[in-house]
C-alpha cells in the first residue's frame, strides 16, 4: 500500500492561498528594447512566466538519489513515474502557510530579503543588459491540482501568483510586474521587516 493513501484526502474547488518569495529579474525585451521584470524562484531559479500556469516537474531520479541514502525512496522513484507532488519525494511548488513562517524561513537561511542585490540576467539569446539592481518580492500564491499539505506549508502541482509585494522603493519594478502578471502589486519599504 502506498503511503500517500494513508494520508487523509480532501477534494476542493477553492485554490489554496499560501505565501512564497521570488526574485525580480530584469529581462531585456528585444522587440521593444525595454527592460521588463520577471519572477523567478529564489532557490532553483525557476522562471514564473506571466499569465501562464506554473506546473511542477520532478527530477527526482537525480536529486533524490543524490540527497537520499534511503534505498526504498530511490527504488520507488526509479521504478515508477510518480504523481507530482509525491509523498515520497520532495517535488512540487513550495509555499508556506503564513507570512511569518516565510520570513522566519529566510531569516533562518541567513538570507535577508530586504537586502538589494545585483541582477545579472540574460535573455534567451544570451544578450546581457546592463547590471541592474534587483530586489526580492514576496506575496501570496494560488495553488491547485494535487497538493501535499504539511504542518508549515504546501507542495503543489500548479501555481500562479495571487498578489505581489516588492521589497524596494522602485516603482518601475512594481509597475512592470503588475503589467505582466496582472495581479495586485505594491511596494513595501524594507525597513518594515526590521
Amino acid at each position: 500500500m502506498s503511503k500517500s493513501k494513508v494520508l487523509p484526502h480532501v477534494v476542493s474547488e477553492e485554490p489554496i492561498i499560501a505565501w512564497r518569495m521570488w526574485q525580480a529579474v530584469a529581462v531585456l525585451n528585444l522587440f521593444s528594447d525595454d527592460i521588463v521584470y520577471r519572477l523567478r524562484a529564489v532557490s532553483k531559479h525557476t522562471e514564473w512566466k506571466p499569465r501562464i500556469t506554473l506546473k511542477a516537474d520532478c527530477f527526482a531520479l537525480v536529486s533524490s538519489l543524490a540527497k537520499s541514502s534511503n534505498r526504498q525512496v530511490s527504488v520507488h522513484l526509479i521504478g515508477f513515474k510518480h504523481q507530482v507532488p509525491d509523498i515520497y519525494c520532495r517535488c512540487g511548488i513550495y509555499a508556506l502557510r503564513t507570512k511569518e513562517k516565510l520570513f522566519n524561513y529566510f531569516t533562518g537561511m541567513k538570507m535577508d530579503p530586504a537586502k538589494p542585490w545585483t541582477v545579472v540576467s540574460a535573455n534567451e539569446r544570451g544578450i546581457l543588459p546592463d547590471r541592474i539592481m534587483g530586489c526580492t518580492v514576496f506575496g501570496q500564491v494560488s495553488l491547485w491540482g494535487e497538493i501535499i499539505e504539511g504542518e508549515d506549508g504546501y507542495r503543489a502541482e500548479y501555481a500562479y501568483p495571487y498578489d505581489l509585494t516588492v521589497l524596494a522603493d522602485d516603482r518601475r519594478i512594481a509597475d512592470s510586474l503588475r503589467e505582466q502578471y496582472q495581479v495586485d502589486t505594491r511596494i513595501e519599504l524594507s525597513q518594515a521587516h526590521h
Binding site: 484526502h9 509523498i87 491547485w144 504539511g150 504542518e151
Partner: peptide, 20 residues
C-alpha cells in the same frame, strides 16, 4: 524550503484556473 510533516493530500479542481 521545508513544509513540515505531511498532514493530508488535497486535490483542488478549481472551476476556473486562477490566472487573471
Amino acid at each position: 524550503m521545508e513544509i513540515g510533516k505531511p498532514k493530508r493530500r488535497i486535490t483542488v479542481n478549481p472551476k476556473s484556473v486562477p490566472i487573471p
